[in-house]
């Protein structure tokens, strides 16, 4: 028997789930299980109660309301990856999802599970941060919405209380034809990234960058926004020299060293991954806006 003993609860409505969360101590929520089940099997976690939310209706689904993409917390990663609306309106989400684990893990793994696990090298928290996503959270007798910057508290620590559950993530959509790229370096396909980077960008009619968002993952304890790099590139044509100048943002990063490589190596990889990401996103913005420049 691999996992330690626990009491198993399987709520069948969100209300029932919230009551269970309020009434239990040391409970863990089982979503897709692609991280938690491994941690149970390895006995890294010892919950007294496991609350399996796979049969709670209404927690999965993808919809676009006005200019916001809303994805239910229990939506499987592979559903999102293959969704035509997501591919059309937020292609970076699908591009990043293709790099999440493998098809067998994406079939089960959920967006809410990945956000709450908050592995610094995971793709979905970086994508959420890049978009200034908002996290919808429920508890008994209440709901609240938390900006992703506040949701990401620290290393593998999401900003939710033990009696709360993430029910959805809302991603503000960028205008049609925006440039995008998500790129990462791993030693083997599907591994956690040594470094990853995402970029969203739009250019005006003259080819000048009028809006840009940059985020990096895998290098520090949490995914980070590249605010300095965004400032360097905003209002420029995004030429190669400016991209190089923007990369100096990586020099100031507090980088983790681990068995994948030393901090210096990871910083080097981050620079290289970010360079490729920025160049691809900027060139796609130009191509998608009708071949400007």
């Amino acid at each position: 028997m691999k996992p330690p003993p626990f009491e198993y609860l399987r709520p069948e409505s969100l209300d029932e789930l919230c009551v269970m969360l309020a009434g239990t101590e040391n409970a863990k929520i089982l979503a897709g299980g692609q991280s938690l089940m491994a941690m149970l099997n390895l006995r890294y976690v010892f919950p007294d109660v496991l609350i399996d939310i796979n049969r709670v209706p209404g927690l999965a689904g993808i919809e676009i309301k006005r200019d916001r993409l809303r994805i239910g917390a229990m939506t499987r990663q592979r559903k999102i990856e293959l969704d035509p609306l997501v591919n059309e309106r937020a292609p970076i989400v699908a591009e990043a999802l293709h790099l999440v684990g493998h098809r067998q893990t994406r079939n089960r793994g959920t967006i809410g599970g990945s956000l709450c696990h908050l592995d610094p090298a995971a793709e979905l928290p970086t994508i959420a941060l890049l978009h200034d996503a908002e996290i919808e959270i429920a508890k008994e007798g209440g709901r609240r919405t938390l900006p992703i910057a506040d949701f990401i508290v620290d290393y593998m620590t999401p900003g939710i209380e033990p009696n709360e559950v993430v029910v959805a993530v809302e991603i503000p959509l960028w205008q049609d034809g925006h440039g995008y790229c998500f790129h990462e370096f791993t030693r083997r396909h599907g591994d956690f990234a040594v470094a990853s980077a995402g970029c969203l960008v739009t250019c005006d009619a003259s080819g000048t960058i009028d809006k840009i968002a940059i985020a990096v993952g895998g290098v520090s304890t949490v995914p980070l926004r590249g605010v300095e790099a965004e400032e360097v590139l905003s209002g420029t044509s995004g030429d190669d020299a400016t991209v190089e100048a923007a990369l100096s943002f990586c020099d100031g990063l507090d980088v983790l060293g681990d068995f994948h490589g030393s901090a210096d190596y990871r910083k080097h990889v981050a620079r290289s991954v970010l360079r490729k990401t920025l160049k691809t996103a900027i060139s796609r913005a130009r191509d998608r806006l009708g071949g400007l420049n």
Partner: peptide, 8 residues
């Protein structure tokens, strides 16, 4: 497809 070691 799913990992049967990661499901109860």
């Amino acid at each position: 497809s799913a990992r049967s070691c990661l499901m109860l």
